[in-house]
């Protein structure tokens, strides 16, 4: 999956996540995760893993992923990420 432009999916409503993906100069997947302190403390690592696993599964590379989390569950995060990546790659 080749990310050619910046695209978004999701929202900043409660229990959602706003994912912004954009092309990156450097290879790899560059993740910036924002969420409430308590969520990062208790679930930060898990959320990062969910995003990285999904991005790899979709074959994303040379991409920056910004995730502005508002308490989304894993399936929401995966769906928003997939939508953002597909919008960014065609």
């Amino acid at each position: 999956m080749l990310v050619t432009k910046t695209a978004q999916a999701g929202s900043t409503a409660n229990s959602d996540v706003l994912i912004t993906v954009s092309p990156s100069e450097t290879p790899g997947i560059h993740l910036q995760l924002k969420s409430k302190d308590v969520v990062l403390k208790l679930f930060g690592e898990q959320i990062e893993k969910v995003i990285m696993d999904k991005a790899k599964e979709l074959g994303a590379d040379n991409v920056t992923i910004k995730a502005e989390d508002k308490g989304a569950l894993d399936y929401t995060i995966r769906a928003r990420l997939q939508a953002a990546l597909e919008r960014a790659s065609n």
Binding site: N14, S15, K36, V38, V39, L42, F43, D69, K70, G71, A72, L73
Partner: peptide, 14 residues
């Protein structure tokens, strides 16, 4: 006599 806790099962992701 009847103490009821009402709450969402999860709040956001917690």
């Amino acid at each position: 006599k009847l103490a009821i806790i009402v709450t969402n099962l999860i709040k956001g992701r917690l």
